[in-house]
Design a protein around this nucleic acid. Structure first.
Lengths: 150, 150
DNA sequence: TCCAATGAGTTGCAAAATGCAACCTATTCG
DNA sequence: CGAATAGGTTGCATTTTGCAACTCATTGGA
């Protein structure tokens, strides 16, 4: 992907991967666009209807996601549509989307409140994601720390 | 946690856990505040200095994170500071932060570009997170789909 | 005791991002 | 040919963000 930002902008924190990711997809819409792309949306109109986003904002976000190598834009076979597809980098955001989804399921819904569920081909729910150390043992935030670069 | 939004606001998508999570922490700063809290920041001034955020924005974000049950605010022992600590729900965001970090490491840095690294107590890097089905087999975005609620 | 420093905000205002509605352009179907 | 579809762009109002200056309470030291 293109590992530079548009002219005039700068990374929030030049060495932190979390900050970079937030710079790229940390706004109200980008991640929801990616979510819908993972769920099969491909055209401008599909995103528009699923998200209820303003047209100009959608135009802007799709352009930036293409620019950052997360989506790929191509002419559709039918000649009058465009097709937006996740690149490899975009598909690789699946893990992050699942992590955010699982947190939401645990903490952002009342116990009796219904929510959509992510399932595999057989309709079975996914396992819960948990960070693991090299030895395979679960690792908490307190048991880890950031090693800054020289 | 408080599973309601402030009066006048509404969920982007009432049944999608991804959308709810993005509603709560999907802005430029909230996730970076949480990242720094996981890395040991506890006071207003610490967050201010680490992030380079405007004071009024930090005030607002800390208030919202407390409101949403992600941070807890208390008076520090020294009497003149406040202490912000991650609640259980806040600590549970560790998985999501790690997922975003690992994506950034893979796709938002040039091969030779240095970045900070998350390590355990022995200085060893974490394993890569990957969504797994109930059977323990890796699951891709294409091999899964969203089941909507009735 | 008083005074400067520290910590945590608040306020006012300018700039940028967002959202809505109307408009435009090309293709295609009947 | 004319209407419908798809994918935008433009103008303008609203909201959010960011910067700098100001406030207020505590507190440690001369």
């Amino acid at each position: 992907m293109d590992v530079t930002l548009a002219a005039g902008s700068a990374w929030t924190d030049p060495t932190c991967p979390v900050a970079r990711t937030v710079d790229l997809i940390g706004d109200r819409w980008s991640l929801l666009i990616i979510r819908d792309a993972m769920d099969g949306a491909t055209t401008f109109t599909e995103f528009l209807q699923r998200l209820g986003i303003a047209r100009n904002i959608l135009t802007d976000r799709l352009r930036k996601l293409v620019e950052h190598g997360i989506l790929d834009k191509s002419a559709a076979a039918d000649g009058r549509r465009h097709t937006y597809r996740l690149t490899e980098a975009g598909q690789d955001l699946f893990t992050a989307v699942v992590a955010l989804r699982q947190w939401g399921e645990r903490h952002a819904f009342a116990p009796d409140e219904p929510h959509s569920v992510l399932v595999d081909d057989q309709g079975r729910e996914l396992r819960e994601l948990h960070p693991l150390g090299q030895d395979g043992a679960p690792l908490s935030a307190e048991a880890s720390h950031v090693r800054r670069t020289a």
